[in-house]
């Protein structure tokens, strides 16, 4: 066991000497630990909006078919989906709510 601890110690020293650990820390950018980069962030935001719209519209459409109120719940679902999309994008940029 002692031998292994010594190994970990030397490994850490060697990594520090070559600046490997610091690079790993910088790479884990973004509040949530997801890879950063403006292009990736933009794509993520777009996908969040589109998927919230899909979820809202699908929910409205299914409820419409069930209740026979064709266009109304679908339109409501579209509005809710848009709102949820904006909420998703806000959550993307807002700091994560931590462990209370």
């Amino acid at each position: 066991m002692n031998e292994q601890n010594g190994f970990e110690e030397r490994l850490r020293e060697a990594r520090g000497r070559h600046g490997l650990d610091r690079a790993a820390q910088e790479q884990g950018s973004g509040a949530s630990g997801l890879p950063g980069g403006s292009m990736g962030l933009g794509l993520r935001a777009g996908i969040e909006v589109v998927s919230a719209l899909i979820a809202g519209v699908a929910l409205g459409w299914v409820l419409d078919r069930w209740l026979g109120t064709f266009p109304w719940l679908l339109l409501l679902g579209f509005v809710l989906g848009a709102a949820a999309g904006i909420l998703n994008v806000y959550r993307l940029f807002a700091p994560r709510r931590g462990i209370h």
Partner: peptide, 24 residues
């Protein structure tokens, strides 16, 4: 009445965004 439906739709959008991201 506004927050709860929006939160539900936001929760339901999770699998959609997860699948669309990988697929796209």
């Amino acid at each position: 009445p506004i927050i709860i439906p929006v939160e539900i739709v936001s929760y339901l959008s999770r699998p959609v965004s997860l699948s669309i991201r990988l697929f796209a």
